[in-house]
Design a protein around this nucleic acid. Structure first.
Lengths: 342, 342
DNA sequence: ATTAGCACTCACCTTAAGAGAGTGCTAATC
DNA sequence: GATTAGCACTCTCTTAAGGTGAGTGCTAAT
């Protein structure tokens, strides 16, 4: 299947590289001139015809140059792509940037800034899925009475995500009672991830606290709600960057993408993954109409080797994959370090 | 200056109304046909020529119909505009919507949903400035130790805005000490708005707590930081709606607007106002390049008659002002009621 | 004061022509 | 047998020209 001889690979590599840079169909002439391919245009034409038949490239119209197909990009990404390193200025910039970010103690700020820098450095749009609540572990929980009926539950997780939730209490409670419940919950839940709270577990809790079961129920409801899908904490950066891409000069496409950007749940869905390392989804691999012309490069970030969230870069399929991968890897690793320190 | 006789006003009204609907230059013919103006096209042409000379309308080119100028819109908004009421379905929709929203206890959720509904109902872009911290009043403050060095300060304001801030403690502190400081602060600050904390006030506090001045300093820094401009809590809704407007078919304009949308501080600046009632800024009145073709309709929302935030609708200058005003007034008042209940 | 009539303007659409880039194929060359 | 030069062909893109139609300004009649 991947029976591409070295020459074809070289040509495909050149086509993809060139097209990524110029967004123009690549002709045989240009290839034989600029790239280290010491073949005549005619020969290259023959090879390109083969590549087209094999599905790696295509022509926008009969007498145009070739552009990579999705399959072409896929092969490029899997086999052909060179690795690039950060440039020195990039490296310095990032180091300085995170020296500043480090001082912020709140995960939300950190992530927001990370989204920003990710989009600036790649000049694509960045998406970051904040630490997932249900993959975070309990650190502690407090309850602060607000008035007769309501109280604020503050939940601190090990990912630095601080969850506030106002709950309505079923009846007036004295601080004493509340404290008991909280103390017990803290003790039972400390260190556990939200996702690991089995039904069994919860039943046990309910049993233990049968005397306070009404309060507990409220608390548990809150937890479950939060753990459930509903909560989408996606941060975007550089949404306007998509407008720089010539493939999105079409109003309709932009509209679809912008509309997608407004739908937190769908973005969350796109980003949720437990994959190790960098994951690249090209065009229809995203399984989303709106994303058919887009690629998404994602990497998870970790706390204690547990993946808790995802950072991603969204651009046209004609994306500078190698550069983006390098950047995303670097930033993910910096984010990891920051989160460990929270 | 505004010496527009009734007939001219009638014609201007018709031009603006028609142009708002169609986005096409309005010709004399169309006016004499469709609107209740029983004058011939020729007469209308003469009047239109006058209106043009007076600066209320203009021609995109010599042989086109007229379109309103900024001054034209201004006059329309100030003097000509009819009031419209919500339609019955709109009213029902809103009532049901807020029946749902009411259940959410968190201001952020409420505002996010309000932004959504505001953009959906107007089909423009909505901007909402969350309750300003410095215009909110203290309700209470708690501190939760996280580890040896750090603690979480939770600050509940009367606008329902709950502020979390991780602070690094200057030295290990026992809960006792912290509680003392917090108790004192709670007592001193309860009911005061952040903005009203004068320097004198703070000096007094520092004096009273001289024994704990290091902790206090940290807390105060946090407060000051938060009260300062830095914190921009702007919520957007329906950003993709701008793409529906024909005046934004130009990529450049869209790009500028989207870029503006990414700059929280500038949005905050745009929205900050203490004005009573509905404020309309048309085109260059916004004092922002990017907004030269846009109008912004805003209304403050209140807690105890104190303006704490702003909701706004952003569209082209060719905006359905009267409809937007009606909607924004209704939604602002519903938001008021919700916030009073927090 | 109002209106009908008319010449004129200008954007927009369609069509045609020409340039340019690139291809596929064939025949010559290494 | 693989490679290349040459050439006819295809298709997009740009530019120019002509035609259409909506709308105007002005003048003379009502």
């Amino acid at each position: 299947m991947t029976g591409l001889n070295e020459r074809k690979q070289k040509i495909l590599h050149a086509i993809v590289t060139d097209y990524i840079q110029t967004a123009e169909p690549v002709g045989s002439r240009a290839l034989s001139r600029h790239y280290q391919i010491k073949l005549s245009a005619a020969t290259i034409r023959n090879e390109m015809a083969d590549l087209e038949e094999l599905g790696f490239v295509t022509q926008p119209h009969t007498s145009a140059g070739r552009i990579p197909t999705q399959q072409g990009y896929r092969f490029f990404v899997d086999t052909l792509m060179d690795q690039v390193a950060l440039t020195n200025p990039e490296e310095k910039y990032l180091a300085e940037f995170y020296r500043q970010v480090q001082k912020m103690q709140e995960i939300d700020l950190i992530i927001q800034h990370t989204a920003k820098v990710l989009s600036v450095m790649t000049s694509y749009t960045s998406l970051i899925l904040g630490p997932l609540f249900r993959r975070s572990a309990f650190k502690q929980m407090r309850i602060i009475p607000i008035d007769q009926e309501r109280a604020l539950v503050v939940l601190i997780t090990d990912t630095g995500y601080i969850k506030n939730k106002v709950i309505t209490l079923p009846r007036a409670l004295n601080q004493e009672e509340l404290n008991q419940v909280i103390a017990y919950l803290n003790q039972q839940l400390a260190g556990k991830t939200i996702a690991s709270l089995s039904a069994e577990h919860l039943r046990q809790l309910r049993h233990d606290l049968y005397a306070r079961v009404d309060i507990l129920n409220h608390m548990m409801n809150m937890l479950e709600e939060s753990a459930a899908e509903g909560e989408s904490r996606v941060f975007l950066g550089g949404t306007s960057n998509i407008l720089n891409q010539p493939e999105f000069k079409d109003m309709k496409k932009i509209k679809h993408l912008l509309t997608l950007f407004e739908q937190g749940e769908r973005l969350t869905f796109m980003l949720e993954t437990e994959m190790e390392g960098v994951l690249i989804r090209i065009g229809t691999e995203n399984n989303l109409q709106e994303m058919d012309d887009c690629s998404l490069v994602t990497a998870s970030y970790y706390l204690h080797n547990r993946p808790v969230g995802t950072i991603g870069v969204l651009g046209p399929t004609r994306m500078e994959y190698s550069r983006v991968i390098t950047i995303i890897e670097e930033i993910a690793s910096r984010l990891n370090r920051l989160i460990e320190a929270l």
